[in-house]
Design a protein around this nucleic acid. Structure first.
Lengths: 343, 343
DNA sequence: CGCAAAATTCAAAGCGCTTTGAGTTTTCAA
DNA sequence: TTGAAAACTCAAAGCGCTTTGAATTTTGCG
C-alpha cells in the first residue's frame, strides 16, 4: 500500500541516497532531479516512516510536557488553551507529545527521566515558581527547552517566552488611578507563581509612582477559578472601606468577581471598576460579559504555538528565533472601567 | 552513557535474542536467565530505544487524538480533564500522543491522514454527534479505536466507553418529581452531541412516567460555559411560570445558573432546586458552591484513563477488556435540592 | 545408556531511513 | 583538447530493536 524510500527510489531510477537528500533539502541535488522526486512523492503519496527517521537520526521527534497534577492546575482551562496552541503547531511538523502528568514534588525526577528516556528531544516548563530549582535542572540536562514564564531571583540566562506581566498590571493600575480610583484590589493567581508575583509588582509600582501605597488586605492569591474570584470579591466588599476598583488575573476569576459585585447590588463600571487579564480563552470572551470587560490581553494559544515553533526549530536546527521573548500585552478599554465614584 | 541491547547482551554473555525475549516476557526463556537479565537491567538502567522498537515492530507507540478546534470545545475544561486521565495512563506505558487539532469540517480527513501516516496505532473519538459519520469511517480504517460516547440511530457495534446519560438524568428528574416539582428546566450541552440528546431523553422519560410532559420552552442547548448557564437561567426565570427546578449538564453551567438565581433573589434549595452533572473537575467542586450542589457524578478523568488502558491493551494485545462499557452515574444529594415551594 | 522430544539459546536477517566515503559525470579555464 | 574542480549520484554501513529458523542443551522414558 504505502511506498517506502526504496520503492520510490527504484521507480525513479535513483538511489535512496539521492532521493533522501532531495527530500531533505540538501544542496548537492540537481534541481531537475529534485523536481522529479517531489512530483513522484506527490503521486505516490509517499510519507517517510517516522520511526525509521527517528532511529536513523537519533531524534525522537517529540516534545516532553510535564503536566502538573497539582490541584486546580492540571485540568485548568488555561493549560488546555495553551496546549491547543502547542498542538496545532507541532502537528504541522509531525511532532509528538509526551505528556507526563506528575505530582509537584516528583517533577524534577520526571523531567530527568523524560530527558534520559530519549523519548523526547525537547522539554517544556510552565508554572514557574519564584526561585524555581527546575530551571537549573533543565539547564544541566543538555536537551533543548523553553520556559513559559521567567523565574525571579536568578539570572534569566535560559530560553523563555514570557508575557510582560509587570507592565500589564502596571498599565492597568495606572489607568484606574487616572480615573480617580484610590483603593484598588487584586485577585491574583497562586502566590508562588512568578506571573502572580510580577502582576502584584506592576500594580504596586504604579501605586507608588502616584504616591499611593498598596493595601495588603486588598490582595488575594489563589487558584484562578470562578469560585475563588467570587469569594475574594465578596470579602473585599465586606470591608469597611471597600475598593472602588479591582484587578483580576484571569477572566475566569472575573466571572466570580462579577457575580459577587452583582450580588452586592453594585454596578460595574460606575460603582466599581474591573480590569481582567484576558488569555483569549474562546470559551470566555470579555466582550460577552453582561458588562464588557476592560482587559489586558495576551493570547495563551499563540504563546503555545510560538513555543512549539521555537522548540522545533531548535531541534531541527532550522530557522533562527530569539532565545528570549517578552510579549507586551494590550490594554483594551471596554465598559467595565469608569471614573471612581464620588465619595 | 546509556547501554543498548547489544551491550547488555555482551555483559551477560547472552545473545540479543535471548535478552530481548527475556524482557518481553516470552515463555521460552529459562527462569533463572530471565532473572539475571532483569537484574542487569536494573543495574545498568537499560531502557530500550523506542524508535528502534517501533521500527522493528511496526507499532508507533502512540495514540492519535483529534482535538476539535470548534469554538468552545477545544480549550474546554472538560476536554482538559479528560486529557489528564488519558495522559496519566499512557505515560505509564510509554505511549505518546499525537494531538491533531482540526476544524470540524476537516475532521474526517484528519482522521484518515492520521491513520495513514503510520504515526499512531490507535485513534480516539469524542464529542459524538447524533448519527455520526465519523464512526463508520473509523470502522473502515482498520486501526483500533475507542469512542467516548455513543452514536444514536446506528447500531452500537464498535468499541465505546459511555456514561449512562439517559439514566443519570432520568434519576435526577425522578428525584425532583418526588420532591413535588412539576416545572423542571434543563440547561443542556450542545444539541447536536449525543450526550445532550440522551440527557434530554432521560428527563423526558421520567416526566412521562409520572404523567407529566416536557415543556420545550424550558430546555436550552448551548456550549457548557458559565455565561450560557447564566443567560439560560435568566430567561427561564423571566417566564410567566418559571420552573421550580433546573437540571444543568455541567457544574460549569451550574455556576452561571446559580448566579442568575441569586441575582433574581431566589434561594437555592427552597425557592428553586438545582441538580448538575458533575464531571469531577478538580477546579469546580459541587461541594464548594455556596449552596452545595446535588449532582450526578462520573469522573471524566477516570474515563480518560480507562480509554487509554483499553486502547493500549488492544494495541499490545495484552489483557482483555470489555469492548463496550456503559458507566452508571451516582446521584449525590446535597443542599441544592429540596421540596417544591408551595404555589 | 540411548534417543526423541522439549527446553533453551543463538546467528542473522530485516524494519526504513540517514549519512559517510567513494565514484561518476559535467563544467570550464588553460 | 585536456585535466582539475565542481556538481551529482551511488553503494553500503549503520541506528537498536524484534523475530525467524536453526543449533544446542536438557529432560524423560524405554
Amino acid at each position: 500500500m504505502n511506498v517506502n524510500l526504496k520503492q520510490l527510489a527504484e521507480m525513479l531510477g535513483l538511489s535512496q541516497t539521492t532521493v533522501s537528500r532531495a527530500l531533505n533539502g540538501y544542496p548537492e541535488v540537481n534541481a531537475e532531479t529534485r523536481q522529479r522526486v517531489l512530483s513522484a512523492v506527490r503521486e505516490t503519496g509517499y510519507r517517510p516512516n517516522r520511526a525509521a527517521q527517528r532511529l536513523a537520526t537519533g531524534r525522537a521527534g517529540s516534545i516532553g510536557l510535564v503536566m502538573p497534577i497539582a490541584q486546580g492546575i492540571d485540568s485548568d482551562v488555561h493549560f488546555g488553551e495553551f496546549l491547543a496552541g502547542l498542538g496545532e503547531e507541532s502537528v504541522r511538523h509531525d511532532f509528538h507529545f509526551v505528556i507526563n502528568p506528575s505530582a509537584p514534588d516528583d517533577e524534577e525526577a520526571t523531567f530527568k527521566r523524560l530527558a534520559a528516556s530519549g523519548n523526547v528531544d525537547a522539554l517544556f516548563l510552565a508554572y514557574v515558581r519564584a526561585n524555581d530549582p527546575r530551571i537549573a535542572m533543565l539547564k544541566s540536562l543538555s536537551i533543548p527547552f523553553v520556559v513559559h514564564g521567567r523565574a525571579i531571583g536568578q539570572p534569566a540566562d535560559y530560553p523563555f517566552l514570557d508575557v510582560d506581566n509587570t507592565g500589564a498590571f502596571h498599565d492597568a493600575t495606572r489607568l484606574l488611578i487616572q480615573l480617580g480610583h484610590r483603593r484598588i484590589a487584586l485577585i491574583n493567581g497562586p502566590g508562588n507563581l512568578t506571573f502572580s508575583i510580577r502582576r502584584l509588582k506592576g500594580m504596586r509600582r504604579a501605586l507608588e509612582e502616584n504616591g499611593l501605597s498598596l493595601d495588603e488586605s486588598l490582595v488575594q492569591n489563589s487558584l484562578m477559578t470562578d469560585e475563588y474570584g467570587y469569594r475574594a470579591m465578596q470579602r473585599f466588599l465586606e470591608q469597611e472601606q471597600p475598593p472602588t476598583a479591582v484587578l483580576c488575573s484571569s477572566t475566569v476569576i472575573a466571572l466570580g468577581a462579577v457575580r459577587a459585585i452583582n450580588k452586592a447590588g453594585l454596578q460595574i463600571g460606575s460603582d466599581i471598576s474591573l480590569i481582567a487579564h484576558d488569555d483569549v480563552l474562546p470559551m470566555l470572551k470579555p466582550e460577552n460579559f453582561s458588562i464588557p470587560l476592560t482587559t489586558t490581553r495576551s493570547s495563551l494559544r499563540a504563546a503555545g504555538a510560538r513555543i512549539a515553533t521555537r522548540l522545533i526549530s531548535r531541534i531541527l536546527k532550522t530557522g533562527d528565533y530569539p532565545d528570549q521573548e517578552l510579549w507586551r500585552t494590550e490594554l483594551i478599554i471596554r465598559a467595565s472601567t469608569g471614573p471612581a465614584p464620588k465619595p
